[in-house]
Structure formats: C-alpha cells, structure tokens
Amino acid sequence: MPRQTKYEGESAPLAPLFGLAGLGFAALIVAGNLILIPAGLPRPGAAIGDVLAFFANSKGALGLASALTPFAWVLSALFGAGAVQVLWRSERDRGGAWALAGFAGVLLQNAAFTGVVALRLALAATPDSSAALGLWALHNALFTLNGTFLALALTGLSLGGLQAGLIPRWHCRLGLSSAALLFGSATLTPWIIDRPGPLGLLGLVGWLLWVVWIAVYSLTLARRPAAPAPC
C-alpha cells in the first residue's frame, strides 16, 4: 500500500460541484437499479423465455431507467475530471499518473455501459427470439466485462487519492477491494454468463462497494472549501 501524505493538491474552485456530480451519479445508478430489479430484470444466464417476457412486458420501467443514464454518464465524467483536477499537482510533483488512469477507467466505463443500455433498448424492440438470444448474450458479456473499467477507475483514483493525502487508508482499501472483486468477475465472464450461480455475487458485491466508495469520495470533494475567485 503506498504511503499516505498530507494533502497538497491543486486549488480547485469547482471541487464542491464535482463532488455533488459524483453524489448525483451514485444516486442515479442506484435509482436505475431500484426501477429495473423490482421489475424483474433477468440475471446473466437467465432462460431466453424469461428474458423475452421481461423486455416485452417492462418497457415502461426500461424506458424510465434508460432515460436516467445520459445524466449519469455526464455526472460521472464531471466527477472523474474533478478528482483529476484536485489531485493533479500532487501527481505532477511525484511523476505519477494514477488519477489519469482512474479517469480513463471512468470514461471507458461510460462507453461500455452505453453499449449495455443500447442492447437493452434493442432487446425491447426485438420480438424475434433468435435475434434476442444473440443480443442478450452480447449484453451479458459486455455488462460483466465492464467490471474491468470500474476496477481501473477504483484503483487509479484510490491510489492517487491516498498518495496525495486526499482520502484515508481505509477508503483506499475499500476501493481496492471493490476493484479486485469487479476485476475477478470480469475475468470469469465466460462462466458467469453461462448460467446463474454464486460467481455472479462477485460483481454484485464489488458493485455495492463501488457505490459506497464513490459516494464517500464525492463527499470528500464536496466538503473541500472552494478557492476564492481571483480579483
């Protein structure tokens, strides 16, 4: 574990705004799941009959959850950019790039989940079971592999934040634990998407830890006093 130092990061007048963006992102992704899971969103490996029934009968819930996602992607990008801004001086002085690696993970996660949401909308518009079978398999693979990018975001911003003294050691450990679970889930994608089972819990627990991690990180940014505007 890298040594933690006293925080000496970049002056960031918009840090509280970026922190609020992260909190908004966390709230939106939780809200999206609270809409889809009670509606019966199938787990990876579910029977195609259950998949077709969900996408045929839950278009309202799917449409509402999908409408939230563009806002979530914008807010997560703002959060990542804000974290980089706050950590940049410390990273530059050390010759490090953990924050940039974490920001890359945030952007790649947005891109991957765009594909996930697009595939869900395509499934809702596809009555043909043979076509739906292929779309669902692609959805499951992309959804599970997305853990790779979440792990990159968690690792980069956790280590960058710890080395800069922005976050405490326990918060870094939380992020690294979540990253390990999500990355492990991604490497086991062929088995997870083959059939429902306990392996899918790796990604679920990792995702729950990710939500807690980003909420705490966002609060850290939101509580930083804004720098005074230049005269």
Rank of each mutant, 00 (worst) to 15 (best):
R3I: 10
T5Q: 15
K6G: 11
K6V: 15
K6F: 13
G9V: 06
G9D: 06
E10P: 05
P13R: 07
L20S: 08
A21W: 03
G22H: 06
A26N: 07
L28T: 07
I29N: 12
A31V: 13
N33C: 12
L36V: 12
A39S: 10
G40R: 00
L41W: 13
P42I: 01
R43W: 10
A46H: 06
A47K: 08
A47W: 04
I48R: 02
G49L: 01
D50M: 01
V51G: 01
L52S: 11
A53L: 09
F54K: 00
F55G: 03
A56P: 04
K59S: 11
G60R: 05
G63L: 15
L64S: 14
A67Y: 12
T69M: 12
P70T: 11
V74E: 05
S76W: 15
A77G: 06
F79G: 01
A81N: 04
A83N: 02
V84Y: 01
Q85E: 05
Q85T: 08
V86N: 02
L87R: 00
R89M: 06
S90E: 09
D93V: 12
R94Y: 05
R94V: 03
G95F: 02
A99C: 00
L100P: 00
L100H: 01
G102T: 01
G102Q: 01
N110M: 11
A111N: 08
F113C: 07
T114G: 15
V117G: 11
L119F: 10
L119N: 05
R120H: 12
L121K: 07
T126K: 05
T126E: 09
T126S: 09
T126Y: 06
T126V: 11
P127I: 04
A132C: 09
L135Q: 13
L138Q: 12
L138S: 11
N140Q: 15
N140D: 15
A141V: 14
T144Y: 13
L145C: 06
L145M: 11
N146K: 11
N146C: 14
F149Q: 07
F149G: 02
A153Q: 01
L154T: 04
G156H: 00
S158L: 02
L159G: 01
G160R: 00
G161L: 00
G161E: 00
L162D: 04
A164M: 03
L166S: 06
L166F: 09
I167W: 04
H171D: 12
L174F: 12
G175P: 03
L176H: 04
L176G: 02
S177F: 13
S177A: 14
S177L: 13
A179N: 04
A180R: 02
L182F: 06
F183A: 08
G184W: 07
A186V: 09
T187F: 15
P190H: 08
W191V: 14
W191M: 15
D194I: 09
D194V: 10
R195Y: 10
G197A: 14
P198F: 06
G200L: 11
G200C: 10
G206C: 12
W207D: 13
W207V: 11
W210M: 13
V212L: 14
W213E: 05
I214L: 09
A215W: 10
V216L: 15
Y217R: 04
Y217S: 07
A222K: 08
R224A: 12
P225N: 09
P228Q: 03
P230M: 08
